[in-house]
Design a protein around this nucleic acid. Structure first.
Lengths: 214, 214
DNA sequence: ACGAGTACTAAGCGTGCGCTCAGCAAGCGA
DNA sequence: TCGCTTGCTGAGCGCACGCTTAGTACTCGT
């Protein structure tokens, strides 16, 4: 489990299972290029040359440039939904569950900020059908968070007058980490995860564990 | 002052001073198109036809497509810096100043979400020189917010262990409103401004005015 | 040894892009 | 009345894009 290193040392962690090797290399090259320039400003020639191949090689493994984006988006969304549901189903108090959810979610967005940037900010370039599928997964993400907030209110641990609005705000906060995070910045993904978990617990009127929030 | 209406009723409010008329129409058309599809997916033909003109007309008023984006970005950033500094210099308590700053900033990003989306999320498409200029204005925004947090801590009204980190988080929260806000959604820009102001006051360990936080 | 299948490349097709240019109609001072 | 300026259009240049096609080297079962 090297996924929490200070750098994006294992950028393909989520794509490790993709075969054949050339298909994975193309996927990683696309992530890099899309994150750097955006989908529409990236050329298929750029992706192929980053993967050390000719432009035509791309079309052996993927039918279109959009399909590459779709694969990246799907794997990324599966990963984030997975992170959140895991935190939701861990057996501690609601405060600890929300703390863990935000911490892991933010840490992933920082550690894999290149992938996360594509996953979170290039949605609009998807085709209509793929877009609809991804939006469904995003709704699931929001539902998990709303459920956590509602549980916290029921348990008397949180005070949240507007649960849907607060859920959107919390997701905004966490997702946006992918936009501004730089590997050479002053904070590690762990530190940002801890900071954001504390901030979110304050937002929901919980009791932050001040030990973590120096 | 109709800028706070429920819809983006005055989308060109910030561009009202632009002359001649055709230049303003092109600017508004570009805002619409960039917000909808993104800079790179927008064609100059699209912009021109939205403004009711031929493609060549664009180049009478602007030297390149990028210059259109630069104008939009500049005016938008000037407006947001202006909003923040106005709130910073109002004469009330730090709590009220931060409350007002977040409220106005968020309200603008919701009410003018089309412009704000371009201003906040299409930066990467700017040329190197224009980009550098805009980044300077964004640094100013961050400084104002950091100043407010520091003042609040000095005055004993806030508890903020990590001022730079919290400032980034607050800005993320507010800016991201432009990404998800829909005019036909359940909330008005005022309501979102009030909700976010309350959430931010909680984040900084202040005393939210619960009357506003319904 | 050899034919089939796989993974790839060199070359390039057709399209639509950003942008240009010659020309025209309207407004206007002299 | 005339020539100059302003604001615009129709046509289109040159280029780079997404993607295709024909062909090649290599692997492998038999």
């Amino acid at each position: 489990m090297t996924e929490t290193g200070p750098d994006e040392a294992v950028p393909g962690e989520s794509f490790g299972g993709v075969t054949p090797d050339a298909a994975r290399r193309l996927l990683l090259a696309a992530v890099e290029a899309f994150a750097e320039r955006g989908f529409h400003a990236t050329t298929t020639r750029d992706i192929a040359s980053r993967a050390g191949m000719s432009p035509a090689a791309l079309y052996i493994h993927y039918r279109t440039k959009e399909e590459l984006l779709y694969h990246i988006s799907r794997v990324g969304h599966e990963r984030t939904v997975c992170l959140l549901t895991a935190a939701e189903q861990s057996g501690h108090s609601v405060t600890e569950r929300l703390d863990g959810a935000v911490r892991d979610f933010v840490r992933w967005h920082a550690a894999h900020h290149t992938t996360a940037r594509v996953v979170q900010y290039e949605l609009a370039a998807l085709g209509a059908e793929h877009y609809a599928e991804i939006v469904t997964m995003r709704r699931r993400t929001e539902e998990v968070l709303r459920g956590l907030l509602a549980d916290g209110v029921s348990a008397g641990e949180f005070t949240v007058p507007d649960i849907p609005g607060t859920a959107v705000a919390v997701l905004s906060l966490c997702i946006d980490v992918a936009r501004w995070f730089r590997t050479d910045g002053p904070r590690t993904p762990e530190e940002i995860g801890a900071l954001y978990a504390a901030l979110v617990l304050r937002m929901v009127g919980g009791e932050p564990r001040e030990a973590d929030y120096q």
